[in-house]
Amino acid sequence: MKLLEEQGRMYGYEITQKVKEITKGELNITEGALYPALHKLEAEGLLDVEVERVDNRLRKYYKLTEKGTTETVNRLAELEEFIKNMQTIVNPKLSY
């Protein structure tokens, strides 16, 4: 969702490649995980779909809806809070 927020709209293969590029190959999203996740977000109304003809074939682009943009902000804030808490647990600052 963060990627879609930054890029505007993306298609499935593009998302897998972008994730690979950002994580320097550390994270590899499989198609079996990506498409169900995208379809779920679409069904929840967080993503909208545009179909376009590109390079002799049809391509399905995903983009965030208004609800999806708000939800991305909320989820990222939740994730940041979670990471902060984890860091506190893993690396606590001792106070005397």
Partner: peptide
């Protein structure tokens, strides 16, 4: 099929 075909074609 629409997006799997596109994905395979990209690969």
């Amino acid at each position: 099929k629409l997006e799997i075909k596109d994905h395979i074609a990209c690969e």
